[in-house]
Amino acid sequence: MIAKIANWFDERVGWKVIWEAIFLRKIPKVNWFYTLGSATLFTAVNQAVTGILLTIYYVPTPDHAYDSVQYITTQIPMGWLIRGLHHWGASAMVVLTVLHMLRVILLGAYKYPREVTWFTGVFLLLVVIGFGFTGYLLPWDQKAYWGSTVGTQIAGAAPVIGDWILRVMRGGPDLSAVTLARFFGVHIWVLPASLILLVAIHMYLIIKIGISAVPKKEELA
């Protein structure tokens, strides 16, 4: 029965080829370190799901942000879990991204023909850091406020254009309602859009090129 329905759709949609290309592709015999990219992707999905749920109650204005976050964690059923998953997932995602990158470096997987995969990876790392930076301000508590004051101030230390960067980031000379709103906008629209685009290219290349094999000692000689 299920097979019949699956075939009916496949005849019209052709999903089986896509399924096979993604999940049934041939890979060299590799080790567990090669799962770090997939682990990172999993944390990305976790962030997306829990982040979307958080926006159902979160309000990005100075007079409501803190209270709405407290409301989520103390009043809403499972709110503590959803926020906790997003909070700890953020750290896990940074750690996993870096570990994945280390595996690519240490096994030389960035070399020809995978340079473009590497470059999309570099931008992915920037996006992941950007998520952490903008998300940190959103709870609008003391830690968030002063953490972001310091963070934007550091960006302001750049020579010549530093002050200008600082003002653009803050939307003015100080951290304000404008800063909170733009950090929120970047956190939930700009960065997710960039992440989806970059992950799509990254994954396309991985599937198209195939993943690298574990390098052997003899090959170096």
């Binding site: 799901v49 159902i56 809403i76 059923p77 499972m78 879990l81």
Partner: peptide
């Protein structure tokens, strides 16, 4: 948990 979270209020 997502359903509990959404219908909570």
């Amino acid at each position: 948990p997502a359903i509990a979270y959404i219908v909570g209020p």
